[in-house]
Simulated assay, not measured.
Amino acid sequence: MWNPAQYERFRDERKRPFFELLARVDAAAPAQVVDLGCGTGDLTLVLAERWPSARVTGVDSSEAMVAEASRRAAPERVRFELADLAGWTPAAPVEVIFSNAALHWLPDHPALLSRLVSLLAPSGVLAFQIPANFDAPSHRRIDEVRGHPRFAATLAPVRRGQAQPLDFYEAHLAGLGLTVDAWDTTYLHVLQGEDAVLQWLLGTTLRPVLAALGAEESQAFLDMLRPLLRADYPATARGTPFRFTRRFVVASRR
């Protein structure tokens, strides 16, 4: 379902939240670090550089992404694993569970977070970032086209991303005994290229939609969506302005 090349198209914009999340993780010398939703693995290697004594595991549910990650030159202490993020279990408690733009694809965040906390070592840290723009024009337009009679039945079971309110994450994780740092950041990306917002969405949000539709119906879906996005996100001489809110959480057992 995932296309590494399409995802990498706006790599600079996508990796910025990773570094902003990482900067807030206070873990001196963890033994085990896990990158849940590692994608192409380049940022997993950044985690290995941050903690040079740690064994680092990148986990992703996409065969294409794990294959791309596994082709990267990496120290022996770095490995990549194909697994469903919802059911992944480490062999031993983990000092740092890090996830950049992946957990929004999983359902039931209360149960998910409780489970991830249960996998932490006594001084462990859970740090994650997820998109929080599901009420933005881009997603409203996708939902509008998803509801068209031509596509509605096929797409009804296809998962959507989701984010709980910021207050939920603080309260739930604090209730589990963790110290929580939680915040939102809204970026204003100025994307380059024709139909730039559509190209952005083709790297992430639209992947499960198009996978369910098949080639011919996917083209029809995109033909219906494209003019709506052009109207909501008009291009300028500088590029196409695109507001994007992301939700950050760092929860520590200390």
Results as ranks from 00 to 15, higher is better:
Gln164Asp: 06
Thr40Trp: 12
Asp135Gly: 13
Val56Phe: 08
Glu81Lys: 03
Gly37Met: 11
Phe80His: 00
Asp223Lys: 01
Val96Ile: 12
Arg159Leu: 02
Ala156Val: 02
Asp35Asn: 01
Ala73Asp: 15
Leu202Arg: 00
Gly58Ser: 00
His172Pro: 02
Glu20Ala: 12
Ala231Tyr: 02
Gly58Asn: 00
Asp181Pro: 08
Leu176Tyr: 06
Thr40His: 11
Ile97Ala: 09
Leu178Cys: 15
His148Phe: 04
Asp223Phe: 00
Ser62Ile: 15
Asp42Tyr: 12
Leu45His: 00
Val145Pro: 01
Ala54Gln: 13
Arg238Ile: 11
Thr245Gln: 14
His139Ser: 08
Val158Ser: 00
Thr44Trp: 08
Ala48Val: 09
Leu116Lys: 01
Phe80Gln: 02
Glu216Cys: 03
Ala31Trp: 09
Asn100Gly: 07
Ala212Leu: 05
Ala23Ile: 05
Leu176Trp: 04
Leu191Ser: 10
Thr236His: 00
Ala102Arg: 05
Arg160Gly: 13
Ala127Ile: 15
Gln199Lys: 10
Thr205Lys: 01
Thr185Cys: 10
Pro17Thr: 12
Pro93Cys: 00
Val117Gly: 07
Glu8Asn: 01
Ser252Asp: 15
Pro131Cys: 03
Pro110Ile: 05
Ser70Trp: 05
Pro90Met: 12
Ala235Glu: 13
Leu210Thr: 06
Asn100Cys: 10
Ala102Gly: 06
Arg141Ala: 06
Ser62Trp: 14
Arg72Asn: 07
Arg115Ala: 08
Ala27Tyr: 11
Phe128Leu: 05
Ala23Phe: 03
Glu81Leu: 14
Ala215Trp: 11
Arg9Gln: 10
Asp223His: 02
Gly214Met: 08
Glu68Pro: 00
Ala48Ile: 10
Tyr187Trp: 07
Tyr187Cys: 05
Ile97His: 08
Ala237Phe: 09
Leu202Trp: 00
Gln199Thr: 10
Ser53Ala: 14
Val78Lys: 13
Trp105Val: 01
Leu225Ala: 06
Ala127Pro: 04
Leu178Asp: 15
Asp12Asn: 02
Arg9Lys: 07
Phe248Cys: 13
Leu120Ala: 04
Arg16Ala: 11
Ala54Asp: 11
His109Ala: 06
Ser114Arg: 02
Val94Asp: 10
Phe248Arg: 14
Ala251Lys: 10
Ala92Gln: 15
Pro227Tyr: 05
Ser218Gly: 14
Thr57Tyr: 10
Leu173Ile: 13
Thr154Ser: 08
Tyr233Ser: 06
Tyr187Ser: 04
Val94Thr: 12
Phe19Asp: 08
